[in-house]
Each structure stands twice: as C-alpha cells, then as structure tokens.
C-alpha cells in the first residue's frame, strides 16, 4: 500500500515535471506587423479566427512552410503568416525610458505636443518661422503628416500584387 502511494507520488511528480518542461520549452513569437490575423487554415482565404495586436505574444504549436500554427494567451488557435511574427519582442510605443526622457525634458508640454491630429506641431512651426520656410513647403509637410492610407487598402494592394500571405 505504502509502495503504491509512493509510486503515485513519483508519477505525479514526473508528470508535473514534464508539464513544466513543456511549458518552458514552448516557443513564443510576437506579432511584428501593425495588423495581423490568425486564420483557420494555411491560406489567406481561410476565415479569420482572431485579430491580433502589434507586440502580442503567441505560443507556437507547429510550423509548416511559411505558416505557423499558434495559440493566443486567451486560447484561440489558428494559422499566421510567418513574416508577421518574430522571436524577439518588437519595440513598443510605450518605451518607458523614452517617455520618461521626453516628460523630463519637456518643461512646457505645449512645446512638442501635437497641435492636432494632423499638421505641424509647435516646435516645427517655430522652426519654420526661424528658418524662413515658405508657406507652400509648410503645407506640403502638413499634408504629409495628415496623409492616411487605411490598412484595408494596403491589404487590397498586397492581394492584387499577390504579395505576403496572398502569394500562395
């Protein structure tokens, strides 16, 4: 009886050890594309299972050709095109050190804060005044700053050129 209990304890310990080893050996990748989805199959025509965010962590289940079968932390499983992930975490917008430096250096918050969703901010407007930049060139940078192309348009462009995940 005692032997059986010991055996069970040993077996449980081995299973726990295996589970731990499996969890630590699991490959993790991070989403490096601005927008990405996981799909139910290995083609761009398969239905989207979940939309992913830049920097999101994914566990690799298996790799086949240029597609990777992954699982999100919430448990969703699907396929993602390999060029949309990386084994290293991409730099985030929330780079704490940079934000801290900016906060520290910015005595007057209005100096560098963007004047609006688009257009020159106060620092570059002040530069334009001092450097004698013409209104025409200010307008050009203003338009450039506000220039927007929707992610869906880029996806359509990739699709029509059979690029990225639409290549296969």
């Amino acid at each position: 009886m005692v032997h059986r209990v010991r055996l069970n304890v040993l077996l449980a310990a081995c299973l726990a050890g295996l589970a731990f080893a499996a969890s630590t050996l699991a490959e993790t990748v991070y989403v490096t594309a601005k927008t990405a989805q996981i799909r139910s199959g290995k083609t761009s025509l398969d239905p989207v299972v979940a939309n992913l965010q830049y920097g999101q962590e994914l566990d690799v289940v298996t790799r086949e050709d240029r597609w990777i079968h992954v699982q999100t932390t919430s448990g969703a499983k699907g396929w993602i095109y390999s060029s949309k992930v990386s084994s290293t975490k991409p730099p985030g917008t929330e780079n704490e050190l940079a934000a801290l430096g900016q906060r520290y250096r910015r005595g007057d918050p209005s100096v560098t804060a963007a004047a609006g969703a688009r257009g020159l901010d106060k620092a570059s407007e002040g530069y334009a005044d001092r450097a004698g930049i013409t209104q025409q060139h200010r307008d050009a940078v203003d338009r450039m700053t506000g220039y927007r192309i929707l992610d869906e348009e880029v996806q359509e462009f990739l699709k029509s050129g059979r690029l990225g995940e639409y290549a296969e």
């Binding site: 917008t93 780079n95 050190l97 940079a98 934000a99 801290l100 430096g101 900016q102 906060r103 520290y104 250096r105 910015r106 560098t112 804060a113 963007a114 020159l120 901010d121 620092a123 570059s124 530069y127 334009a128 940078v141 700053t145």
Partner: peptide, 14 residues
C-alpha cells in the same frame, strides 16, 4: 534618456 515619440515627431517634421 532616449528621445520620446513626440520629440521624434517634432524633429521629423522640422
């Protein structure tokens, strides 16, 4: 400390 995103935008525009 590194240059932050808003500072980078100002520099880029200028």
């Amino acid at each position: 400390l590194p240059i932050g995103p808003e500072e980078e935008e100002s520099i880029g525009q200028a």
